[in-house]
Structures are given as C-alpha cells and as structure tokens.
Amino acid sequence: MADKLIRATAADNGIRAVGVITTRLTEEARQRHNLSYVATAALGRTMTAGLLLVSSMKKAESRVNIRFEGNGPLGSILVDAGLDGTVRGYVQNPEVELPPNDKGKLDVGGAVGKDGYLYVIRDVGYGYPYSSTVELVSGEVGDDIANYLVTSEQTPSALLLGVFVGADGVTAAGGLLLQVLPKAARDESLVALLESRVSKLSGFTPLLRAGKSLNDIMEDMLGDLGLTIMPESQLVRFSCRCSFDRVLGALKMLGEAELQDMIEKDEGAEATCQFCNEVYQATESELSRIIDDLRAESN
C-alpha cells in the first residue's frame, strides 16, 4: 500500500478528517538513522503528525516543524513536514531501547519522557512563522499533539497515530486526524461522539494490518455523518532538502582559518545531515576554492 494522504469532510462540513499512510517513509527513516524499535515508533508517529498538521495549510510553501524535548532517554525529536507531502526528521539518541510498557507495547512515552515541552512552528509561506509551546502530557506523541491542538489552536480534535515495527522493519504506520470545526464546535454531542468512536479503537496500525484502506477507515468512522472523501489523494514521502551545495555554503561560514586547518589536518572535510544521515565529503581542492572565494569577497 502506497504512502498517501486523503482528506474528507462530514457533518455538513462541520468535521474535517485527514488520514495518512506512512509505512514506507517511516521504514526509510529507520534505515537511514539506524533507529531502535522505540525510536522508530517515536519518530514515525511524529512524522505522521507533521503531515497531518500541515495538510490544513494553504500556500504550497507551507511547512510545520515539530520538536519534542522530553526528559526521556531519546532526547530531542525534530520533524519538518511540508504541504507538498515531504517529511524528514531525526531522533537525538536513535539507539535507545526500552522494555515494553505495561500494555505490552513499545514504551514511547517512557522514551520521550512525560516532563518537558512540545514546540510547534507553522510557516505559512510568508511573513513570520507562528510558534507555540505546550507542556508534555504523556510523551506518547499522539496525546501531546492532540493537547497542542486543543490548547494552542482551540480546535477539538481526535488523533490516532501508530507505527508497527518488527524484525523485518516497519510493516504498518499512519494516522487519522478528526477535527470539529468552529461552526460545529458548539455541538458537544458531536465532539463526544468522535471521542467515543476513537476511544473504542485499539489503535491505527491494527486497522492497516487487517487490510483496511484509508477510505475504509474513514467510512467506518464517519460514514453515517454525511462523509465526503475528496477524490484526489496525495503521495507522501521521506525527503530531505540537504545538498552538497548547501554543505559548501555552511563550510564557507567557518572562515578561512578553520578551513585551512581542515586542509592541513584532515585533508578535507566531512559533514553529515542530521535529518537524513547523508554524508558529504569535501576535498582539499574544494576547500581551497572556498578559501579563494572568501579572499576575493574581502578585497
């Protein structure tokens, strides 16, 4: 099943629904960063959340950045997602592994930590980005993103995020976001109905592993509420904006003295992108050309 995102409405446009499958992109992140089981689940959930959050923005250049800073052993989690369907991210300590929690599931909450903060930045494509900070409520990612939506955006929301990872890698990942829009938010029974339906589910990945498509899941959740699924789906993928030219630009900022030191001691330079783990090598001659450019600019 391809990684893709679909959008829908229900209850006379009073409910907005977005579903996304992120199995392949989460597996790519796992391989790129050599992630442990629990780190895969944490990063996969956060990347899925990023794609769901950015899906409601308008301008093509819109992006959402999500950063978890909890007191757990995983350290920071940083994700960058775009309206174009691209997402990337990394975990500070990707090798951390924990025993299952008391429910027998991957202990994402323990790995992230229950004390700390969630930072969300929305770049709408022009002007200054909007930033929000909320305290963590559980470290389980989904709970914290839902709390952010209610606290910072005042939008009643139900959120399901899931990653199933086994010995063969990630076999199911994705999520579902249901939001009661302002025109319907005063209908407390509608909010309660959505919460009740989500609470009865055992998770999102069991639905995928049972062969359910995004359309099936939407139909089961909202089919009796006037569901309208948009005909166009969007492909989503892991994609990083790093490049060798950007690396050379970053090296240029180090200055002539440090670049010369790299030439003499290391016979070049090596840089690794945190987001995708791509390694870039700059030769002595390339560093020498940067030094020549710096000298030319100073004259």
Rank of each mutant, 00 (worst) to 15 (best):
Y128M: 09
K183H: 06
D80R: 06
V87P: 04
E256C: 14
I229Q: 02
A158N: 02
I77A: 02
D266Y: 05
I6H: 00
D216F: 04
R246C: 03
S189L: 10
V198P: 07
A41W: 06
L98R: 10
M221T: 02
E286A: 01
K183P: 01
R209N: 11
D216T: 03
L98E: 04
A257I: 15
N71C: 15
I121S: 13
N277L: 07
L201A: 14
A269C: 07
N299M: 15
M57I: 12
L194R: 01
Y128T: 08
L106F: 10
V18M: 00
E28V: 11
C242G: 05
V87S: 04
K59R: 14
L214E: 00
S138H: 07
K105R: 07
G125T: 12
R209S: 07
M218C: 03
I229V: 11
G127Q: 13
T23R: 06
G75S: 10
L294K: 10
E28H: 12
S243E: 03
L208D: 08
I6Q: 00
F238M: 08
A184Q: 00
S152N: 07
A167I: 15
G110H: 07
P129F: 10
E232Y: 04
T171H: 08
A173Y: 04
N215A: 05
C276D: 03
N93R: 09
A111K: 05
T205C: 12
E61G: 15
T26M: 08
I291Y: 14
M57Q: 15
R32S: 10
L235Y: 15
Q179T: 02
V191A: 11
S62T: 15
A257T: 11
D168F: 12
D292I: 12
Y90Q: 04
Y130R: 08
A250E: 03
L106N: 04
G109L: 12
S138R: 06
F68E: 01
E270R: 10
A158G: 08
A296C: 11
R289S: 11
V112N: 02
N215Y: 04
K4C: 02
D115F: 09
A2Y: 09
A296D: 12
G226W: 09
L53Y: 06
C240D: 07
I121F: 11
L159F: 00
S202M: 07
C240G: 02
V236K: 00
V247F: 00
K59L: 14
L98W: 14
V87Y: 05
L176V: 04
A8L: 00
L254S: 15
R295T: 15
A250C: 01
E264C: 02
L207N: 08
L222Y: 08
K4Y: 06
